[in-house]
Computed example of a mutant assay.
Amino acid sequence: MVKKLLLYPFFLLFLTFSSFAQDISGSWSWNSVDGGNMFTIDLIEISENNYRGNHCSVYLHGERIDCNDNKDEFSIVLIRKAENIFQGSIRSGLSYAVGNVQLQYQPVENRILFSLKTNPKGEYYIPVEGVLVRN
């Protein structure tokens, strides 16, 4: 009985952290240190391991814009590869070329580490790396 009572707080802690894990649905944003560049993504859960979404990048204080203009199609396709790790593709709204991305969700901080793993061909304005926070 005493062992069960001692394990109970650890079980509650585990449930608390697992309930935060994996939910990346919603709006996320990143701004460069100088404020001249910004990047946003909006994600929805399609199924347990699949997310889709759209992005918008504004670079050089608004002189370059790379957004998905076609709201009938998603510019981001993600699949959960491991606990809090999502990999997939992003299609530039400027060149329509596709690059590969990885997102690592950090549930305690409620943020996403974004990495552009393979650059799209042609002209694009998507950060190579960024820490996105939930809006």
Rank of each mutant, 00 (worst) to 15 (best):
105 Y>Q: 08
58 V>H: 07
51 Y>L: 10
60 L>D: 13
105 Y>C: 03
94 L>E: 14
94 L>K: 15
26 G>N: 09
53 G>I: 01
66 D>H: 05
50 N>T: 09
59 Y>E: 12
99 G>I: 09
105 Y>R: 07
124 Y>F: 14
53 G>K: 05
106 Q>T: 02
32 S>I: 10
101 V>G: 04
76 I>N: 02
80 R>G: 01
76 I>P: 04
72 D>N: 08
91 R>Q: 03
107 P>E: 08
21 A>F: 13
106 Q>I: 01
70 N>R: 12
24 I>N: 09
32 S>G: 13
59 Y>A: 14
121 K>P: 04
33 V>Y: 15
47 S>M: 06
103 L>K: 00
107 P>V: 06
27 S>W: 02
113 L>G: 00
39 F>L: 09
24 I>C: 08
106 Q>W: 02
125 Y>W: 10
95 S>R: 08
42 D>I: 02
109 E>N: 05
93 G>V: 03
62 G>V: 11
56 C>H: 03
110 N>W: 00
47 S>Q: 08
49 N>W: 11
113 L>M: 04
87 Q>W: 00
127 P>L: 13
13 L>C: 15
94 L>N: 13
86 F>G: 01
126 I>M: 07
47 S>I: 06
62 G>E: 09
50 N>A: 01
33 V>M: 15
19 S>T: 13
107 P>A: 07
112 I>Y: 00
105 Y>T: 04
117 K>E: 08
67 C>Q: 06
127 P>R: 14
19 S>I: 12
108 V>E: 12
127 P>V: 13
91 R>I: 07
111 R>I: 05
93 G>E: 08
29 S>P: 06
45 E>S: 14
74 F>N: 06
66 D>T: 06
37 N>V: 01
20 F>R: 11
20 F>E: 09
71 K>H: 05
75 S>L: 02
79 I>Q: 02
117 K>I: 11
57 S>W: 02
41 I>S: 04
43 L>P: 05
